[in-house]
């Protein structure tokens, strides 16, 4: 088990999200950076979608009640085990009673906001409606359907599994994306794109959008050029997905994120492609982001690129695992 010792504000148990319950009004939830979650699990020999703890606020301290193999991925929060530095994005081993502290991210080659504490075997909370992710609105899933609190004992599964202490180079270095020095995400136009003024359409692609402090797992509220439809739009409610860029009446876009409701009625000017949601999920409030237009084929190629990166990591890490286990 993992005991939450300090600083659990907004930390939640997440996996790759809940599929199959949209027809009950249940949103997907899941890790804001699915690549970091999958990479941490690959390092530990887990299924890519094993549950981990997503940590958006630091410092954060846990104590391992039993010997545990773990990896901290996502933002570099200078992980330290009983005060001794351990590298980020590495499989490490903790002895029973050791404490792991994650600090406020400092200057880094990658500006990111969320860390993932992955453990061998995964966080062992019950599967609810097909997922271990915390469903905030429904108050179920995750650890008792809520963010973690100091004193919580979070169950882990077979945490002391053997394996080599190797790391992964974070995917942002192999899969970089920026436009004019500003981190970018690729966007496909959505249903109401043509209903916006030509000026609004141009602004969508040209503006370096500021991610305001009012941005969280529900949505990223952006500040920049005002986006106006040609005529006011009132839509019938319909299903939406993480990545949808809605434009409420005020003209400042909101990108729906993992805890967003699964339906909506605001005009949609575009949708961030699924392959780039991990970048967006790590973009810090106060930073800027650009939307890059792309084609359907380019969007699918981007998804295939992510898949290739994960497959390669799994293949090479898998070789290391077999070597570490004496060829078993």
């Amino acid at each position: 088990m993992i005991e939450i010792v300090a600083g659990a504000a907004l930390a939640t148990v997440q996996d790759l999200g809940r599929v199959g319950a949209l027809n009950l009004g249940v949103g997907v939830a899941g890790a804001m950076d699915p690549m970091a979650l999958a990479a941490g699990n690959i390092l530990l020999g887990n299924e890519e979608g094993a549950a981990a703890i997503e940590i958006p606020v630091f410092p954060f301290t846990v104590r391992f009640t039993e010997p545990t193999r773990f990896a901290v991925t996502g933002t570099d929060c200078a992980p330290a085990l009983d005060g001794k530095a351990v590298p980020p994005w590495f499989a490490c081993r903790a002895q029973a009673g050791q404490s792991l502290t994650l600090s406020v991210p400092g200057p880094s080659a990658w500006r990111a906001t969320r860390a993932y504490l992955c453990v061998a075997g995964g966080i062992d909370v019950p599967v609810v409606l097909g997922s271990r992710s915390t469903q905030m609105r429904g108050a179920f899933g995750g650890h008792e359907g809520r963010p973690l609190q100091t004193g919580d004992l979070v169950p882990t599964h077979a945490a002391d599994r053997a394996g080599p202490d190797v790391g992964l180079v974070p995917p942002v270095f192999d899969l970089p994306l920026d436009v004019d020095g500003v981190p970018a995400v690729r966007v496909l136009p959505a249903a109401e794109y043509d209903a916006f003024t030509p000026q609004a359409q141009a602004s969508l692609w040209s503006c370096a959008w500021k991610i305001t402090p009012q941005s969280d797992r529900y949505g990223f509220r952006l500040a920049g050029d005002e986006l106006k439809p040609r005529v006011p739009l009132e839509l019938r409610s319909h299903g939406i997905v993480p990545g949808v860029i809605q434009v409420p009446h005020g003209g400042q876009p909101i990108i729906q994120m993992r805890d967003a409701q699964p339906s909506g009625g605001y005009p949609k000017i575009g949708v961030v492609i699924e392959a780039d949601l991990w970048r967006l999920g790590q973009a810090p409030p106060g930073s800027r982001i650009r939307f890059a237009p792309c084609t359907w084929d380019e969007a699918l190629d981007a998804a295939a690129g992510n898949r290739r990166w994960l497959d390669k990591a799994r293949r090479i890490a898998g070789l290391q695992h077999r070597a570490g286990e004496g060829g078993r």
């Binding site: 949209l22 027809n23 009950l24 009004g25 249940v26 949103g27 469903q135 609105r137 429904g138 009132e234 409610s237 299903g239 409420p248 009446h249 005020g250 409701q261 699964p262 339906s263 909506g264 009625g265 605001y266």
Partner: peptide, 27 residues
């Protein structure tokens, strides 16, 4: 007509158009 928005929420059909009122500017 459908479930959506949040767990268990029902979208209903059949409201009288005379009481239709736009969504709020600020949620």
């Amino acid at each position: 007509y459908a479930l959506g928005s949040h767990p268990g929420y029902c979208y209903l059909g059949g409201m009288d158009a005379r009481i239709a009122t736009p969504r709020r500017k600020v949620p």
